[in-house]
Amino acid sequence: MSRMLVDADAIRALADILTETGLTEIEIAEKDNRIRVVRGGSVVHTAAPAPIAAAPAGTPTPAAAPVDPAKHPGAVNSPMVGIAYLTPDPSAPPFVSEGQSVTAGQTIMLIEAMKTFNQIKAPRAGTLTRFLVTSGDPVEFGEALAIIE
């Protein structure tokens, strides 16, 4: 019978990150060990959706589901978990405004992670058409932050 060792310090650190960022769940994995911390008292059970019958011929089909912004070819995705800020400080103007042209490498926002402010730079030149977050929003790894076209 194998025994799993619990790293209480790692669990406390993850719980602190949940509290700081407002996230409800975080998970880390290293080799054969995995720690998942979930905040909240309710357990959510999911079930497979019921199969959908094909619509009879001549019946209008429902509108297509909205496209996931993270899959947009111009999406700028978060490289980390943290809090997004669109300005260098609360009284300053934003780094970039929607509709503004940006150059590759230009700072478009900050993400605060573990009390460190990380610059998020435009990966390509183009026009920043839309922010998908607002200042103070918690963001997760891989989450779409903005669209540059």
Rank of each mutant, 00 (worst) to 15 (best):
V44K: 13
T127S: 04
D68M: 05
V81D: 05
A146Q: 10
V76G: 00
I148F: 02
R130F: 11
S2P: 12
V43F: 15
Y85A: 01
P88N: 00
T87K: 13
A57R: 15
K31L: 09
P90C: 05
V81P: 02
T134Q: 15
A104R: 15
R124E: 08
P73C: 07
L128D: 10
M4Y: 06
S78H: 13
D89E: 15
D137P: 00
A55P: 02
A29H: 15
K121F: 10
E20Y: 03
A29V: 15
A122D: 01
F117L: 07
F117R: 03
V6H: 01
P123I: 07
V133Y: 01
S2I: 06
G40W: 14
V133N: 01
G74I: 09
I83W: 02
A113T: 14
P88S: 01
E149L: 08
P66I: 13
P138T: 07
V81T: 04
A125L: 06
S91N: 12
G74V: 09
D137T: 08
M114Y: 08
R130Y: 09
A57Y: 12
A55S: 08
G74F: 06
R3I: 10
P62W: 06
V37F: 15
P62K: 15
I28N: 04
P88H: 00
V38C: 07
K121G: 01
Q119G: 05
A48H: 08
I11A: 07
P90I: 04
N33A: 11
L86S: 03
S91M: 12
I52S: 03
F141H: 12
P88A: 00
G126F: 09
L23W: 05
V133C: 01
V96N: 00
D32W: 04
S101E: 10
A54Y: 01
S101C: 02
E140P: 03
G105S: 11
V139L: 08
P60D: 10
M4R: 04
H45W: 13
I148C: 01
P49K: 03
